[in-house]
Design a protein around this nucleic acid. Structure first.
Lengths: 214, 214
DNA sequence: GGTGATATTTCGGTGTGCCGAAACCTGCCG
DNA sequence: CGGCAGGTTTCGGCACACCGAAATATCACC
C-alpha cells in the first residue's frame, strides 16, 4: 500500500492500461498488456500484482485490471507528457510525425510536470498532438472527440480525419503517401491497408467535397 | 566484456568519474564517487567492478578508477547532453541558472543523440552552458578554458568570470545576489562565502575596470 | 456436464543496483 | 617495525523487473 515514487515501469504499465481503454472498452487483460508492453505474460501478472498492492490498480485474477483514481491520475499525467513532447518534437524541432513516438516514449519518464507545463505554454497550449490525440489538461481532464474508425465509414460517406494512431510508424508513412493527414476530408472507401484503416478515425461530415484519396 | 546498452546508472558513474577529473586531477577513489553519486561506498565498489568488466573503466583496487577510451566517449557524450539541455532550459524555457541542474540530470538519460544535436543547432550551436561550462562537440572534443579559482585570485587582481560550478544551487543564488555572472569582471577579494569562491573560476585580466563586488 | 484449447498465474531463476556489517588493505606515526 | 585510523572491499541480503516451464483457471463446444 506504500505510495513511493513510481518507477518508469510503473508509469509504463499505468499508461498502457489507460491507453488500451481510450478508444475501446474491452477488458484490459494481462495478455493485452504484455503485447502492448513487449514483455512476457508472467512478467505482467507479477508486476500487476505489485501495482495492485501499491493501490494504482485493481486486479481481478483471470479477468483483467482497472485503474484506481490514483492510477488514472498518474496514467493521464503520462499521456499528457507524451503528447506535449510529441508536439514539441514536431513543432519546434522539425521531426516528422512518424518519428516522434519512440523518442517521446523515453522522454516522458524524465520530464517534470513543471517542464511539461512550460513546454505546453511555449508551444501555444495546443489541445491535440501531431496525430490528433487530445492533450489532457494539467488537471487531468481529457477531451475525447467522438469519431469513428475509417474502416467503419460507409461507402460514399465523407469524414474529416481527426486522429491517426501513432503506434506503427509504417502506418503513418502510408497515410503521408495517400495524402491522409489531420483535418483532411476523405470519402470512403479510401485506398489504405487494413491496419491503416483501423488507425485512422474520422468525424462524419455532410458535404463530401474533398477528393478522398481513392 | 559485453558491450550492451549502458543503463542510466552506468551513464551516471562514467559522467561522475569524468567530472571529478575535469577541473582537478586528484585520483578518483570509490569514496569520492560515492559522495558524488549519493550512494554507499560498497555500492560503488561493486558497480565499479561491473563497469570494469564491461570495459568502460579500469579499477585499481584500493587506488581508484580511470576511464577507458570507450568510457570516456560515453562520459563526454553525457556531459554534452547535460550542458545542451541546461542551455535549452535557460534560453528557451526561461529557467533560472540555479534551477536547471536537477532537471538536466534526469533528462540526460532520456534524450537521443539526434535530439541533442537538433536542440544544439536550434539554440544556435552554443559553445558553453549557462554556467560557463564548455559544451563538448558531437565528436567528443572538449575545449576547457584555463581559468583559476576566484578563491586563488590575488588581492587587487582582476578576473573575468568564465565558469561557476552548478552543483550547489545556493552558491548560484549567492552569485546572483552579489552580481557575479558570466563575463562580469571582478577584482579580488570578492565578498562571497568560501564555497562560492571555490565554485567561481575567472580568467585574469589586465585592466581592472569593473567594480568587483567588494 | 465433461473436455480440450487458450488464457492466466505460479514457480524457480537471472541481472542490476542498492544497503549495513564485517573483513580487509594502506599509510602514517610512534 | 608494529599498530592503528582511515579508506576500501567482501559478504549476505533485499527490491525490482524480467524470463521459460509448469500448473491452473476459464470458456466454448460437443
Amino acid at each position: 500500500m506504500s505510495a513511493r515514487t513510481p518507477s518508469a515501469t510503473v508509469e509504463d504499465y499505468l499508461k498502457a492500461v489507460w491507453s488500451l481503454q481510450e478508444w475501446d472498452d474491452a477488458p484490459v487483460t494481462t495478455t493485452r498488456l504484455a503485447r502492448r508492453l513487449g514483455v512476457g505474460a508472467p512478467t505482467v501478472s507479477e508486476t500487476v500484482q505489485r501495482l495492485a498492492e501499491r493501490g494504482w490498480l485493481v486486479h481481478e485474477p483471470y479477468r483483467g485490471v482497472t485503474l484506481t483514481a490514483t492510477g488514472r491520475t498518474l496514467a493521464v499525467r503520462m499521456v499528457r507528457r507524451h503528447r506535449v513532447l510529441e508536439t514539441w518534437l514536431v513543432d519546434a524541432l522539425g521531426y516528422a510525425w512518424d518519428e516522434v513516438h519512440e523518442e517521446a516514449e523515453v522522454l516522458e519518464h524524465a520530464v517534470s510536470d513543471r517542464l511539461v507545463d512550460r513546454l505546453h505554454r511555449a508551444l501555444g497550449s495546443p489541445t491535440r498532438d501531431p496525430h490528433g490525440d487530445p492533450v489532457p489538461d494539467a488537471d487531468g481532464t481529457v477531451h475525447r472527440p467522438d469519431a469513428v474508425l475509417l474502416a467503419d465509414l460507409a461507402a460514399g460517406q465523407a469524414g474529416r480525419v481527426v486522429r491517426v494512431d501513432d503506434a506503427v510508424p509504417e502506418v503513418l508513412r502510408e497515410c503521408d503517401a495517400a495524402g491522409v493527414a489531420l483535418d483532411v476530408v476523405v470519402v470512403a472507401p479510401v485506398a489504405l491497408s487494413g491496419p491503416a484503416l483501423r488507425a485512422v478515425r474520422v468525424q462524419p461530415v455532410d458535404a463530401p467535397d474533398g477528393d478522398g484519396g481513392a
